[in-house]
Design a protein around this nucleic acid. Structure first.
Lengths: 195, 195
DNA sequence: GTACAATGAACCGCGGTTCAGTCATGCGCG
DNA sequence: CGCGCATGACTGAACCGCGGTTCATTGTAC
């Protein structure tokens, strides 16, 4: 039983508990029970309850960005990269329902998500999207009259809302099925006419 | 001093307090002080602290939807309606920074926003957007191969993300300036070729 | 004088955090 | 080899501050 075992064990338990009850309605003792440790043990690995949420988000988000980055790198043209990005975004959430619930609903709490400690990881994802769009503009595939930072937010916002609706609607359909439609609308919106 | 005076007074105070500190970091006594009443008075008008948040959201959102609905009704063609909708969405938030903060950041808490008591008001807005897009399809202006419920979420998500970024970035620029770009990307995405 | 709005100090349950004690592991020494 | 002893992870009951809620009292309008 390596140290990182317990750390990870607690993180994974926290994801499930937060997904079930929400952050503020979860007590530390709930996470402890779910992880199969005593509540005091939590404090050997995390400074505070908040720290669990922040750490969980940082680790999950960092892994996410790394995963997406390496997967879209292999796609040669910008259009394919965007399609792949959307598909991966949805696929990641669909693969882990508890994580999806936490990311889409619970992590938006107050100042903890975009602002605060996780800001760095979030902006890394934004920058990843932005770099794809910039490359597309440089290649003459995407129109230059749409500011990249606007297009980035439009794409992220579209994916994010699709995901949120899917989570809140109790995941009754396959999120991935909508990936093409979302990518198509966006691409049609930013591509130069006749490409 | 009509009864509804105090009710409204408390709601407006709550908006400012929640905007400043976040929902969970605001105590009822803070709202009371801001409203200029005693903390016990709050409970003559609201059942619980949660009730304040839910009521505030319902009232604000209902007014929002009504306002947008009547304003876009005068625009005759679907494209103009969409442009107007985006402009109004941003304008409403820009006019009331405290409300914007609460709507974009604080109200996303746990199950209180899209799920739960406010679900009805949110879906009213979604249906409003959806009806515009449907009319556009019927008129042959918008493409029929994009499902309306997907396009609705794409548009809402795009606007919502723009707004969230603007709020989190401390409102350093004019949100309204981005309205055209957002509307243009979306419209280009859903309009039939050559319209 | 009656009714009812408003007050705000005090209550009380909740739950994050602590810490004194238990247990397991491995190491040195006879 | 085996027997304690030191080390440090782990435990979980108890503590304690916080803040939502209540309600006996006061103020006011008619």
């Amino acid at each position: 039983m390596r140290e990182s075992d317990k750390h990870q064990q607690i993180i994974e338990a926290a994801v499930r508990v937060f997904a079930r009850n929400g952050y503020y309605n979860s007590r530390v003792s709930d996470i402890a029970r779910e992880a199969g440790v005593a509540s005091g043990t939590i404090y050997l690995y995390f400074k505070t309850k908040d720290d669990i949420l922040v750490t969980l988000f940082r680790e999950k988000m960092a892994a996410w960005v790394a995963h997406v980055r390496e997967r879209i790198a292999v796609e040669p043209d910008p259009v394919a990269k965007v399609r792949r990005l959307v598909a991966l975004h949805f696929d990641t959430l669909e693969r882990d329902p508890a994580l999806a619930e936490v990311v889409q609903v619970e992590l938006r709490q107050g100042h903890k998500f975009f602002r605060g400690a996780s800001a760095h990881e979030v902006s890394a994802y934004f920058e990843l999207i932005g770099s794809v769009l910039e490359a597309g503009q440089a290649a003459g595939v995407f129109r230059g009259d749409v500011p990249v930072n606007v297009a980035t937010k439009v794409l992220f916002g579209a994916m994010d809302q699709m995901a949120t609706s899917w989570v809140l609607g109790k995941r009754k359909y396959r999120l991935t099925d909508a990936a093409d439609a979302v990518a198509t609308v966006f691409l049609r919106g930013v591509t130069v006419d006749g490409a």
